[in-house]
Design a protein around this nucleic acid. Structure first.
Lengths: 135, 135
DNA sequence: GTACGTGCAAAGGTTTTGCATGGCG
DNA sequence: CGCCATGCAAAACCTTTGCACGTAC
């Protein structure tokens, strides 16, 4: 289910500014700040306003379609599409490494059952030190 | 290793304002916003200033002793002690459920090895819908 | 005594809101 | 045609910084 489909399913209009943002979100290779979203969105739809960026993020977050997280440096908020994510974050240099293969797909269901949750995605972040930064 | 010990190990002074904050952090039952930290810290050390809250958080984050994350509602930043955390977050009502027993302690090492990381802690968040909110 | 830490207040930046206009369905 | 969505600009908010004073070691 794409973000656009999610918006429509929830009876939100699919306008040009929103399309631009969705496209940016779905094609971004990493988590973006609000400012980056605005910049990239304007490459597609130049009149895009800052307010629309925030308003759209708010809608998507409320729908559970994405989630805001911090990056390792504690920097401003970043948008994170609500697929499952797996990161290794170096506490030394702040570098983030993604890995794709999910080590806990089986646990998702198992834990969900225990708490009566229907789990749809997850975020797994491992903190430590990379080879270069190891004390 | 307590937060106080960590600070001292890194040759930071253990002053009254910092002690107050550490006590708040170590006894808080959940993640707090900066404003809550200030408020609770002032209950212990009334002259505590906002600036000291942020400066202390920055130090602790740099030491890898805690980490800033968002709560489920995408609200302002919260301080999260850098022990491993396991949450179930309901996308409907925003409620967060913690569970203590770690389902991936064995994976930590395994994944670390693969990437040459020495992993010290992790954050695992599962998103879904609780029984009451299930669509 | 010196370097580090603090509080205050001001500056800086980001997010949110109000309102008039424009566009979708 | 009515309602939702938008852009702009101002307001509100949160975080950071500069500086003079205190305090720890």
């Amino acid at each position: 289910m794409t973000l656009a489909e999610r918006l429509q399913a929830a009876h939100y209009q699919l306008t040009a500014p929103r399309r631009a943002l969705l496209q940016v979100l779905e094609t971004s290779e990493r988590h973006l700040t609000a400012a980056e979203l605005l910049e990239r969105g304007r490459a597609i739809y130049p009149a895009l306003s800052r307010a629309t960026v925030y308003r759209t993020l708010e809608i998507l977050a409320a729908l559970g379609a994405l989630r805001l997280i911090y990056d390792a440096s504690g920097a401003p908020r970043v948008a994170c599409i609500a697929e499952s994510h797996h990161h290794l974050i170096c506490l030394g240099c702040g570098e983030t490494f993604h890995f794709d293969d999910c080590p806990i797909s089986n646990l998702e269901e198992q834990i969900g059952e225990r708490f009566g949750f229907s789990v749809s995605s997850h975020l797994l972040e491992l903190y430590g030190f990379c080879q270069a930064c190891r004390p």
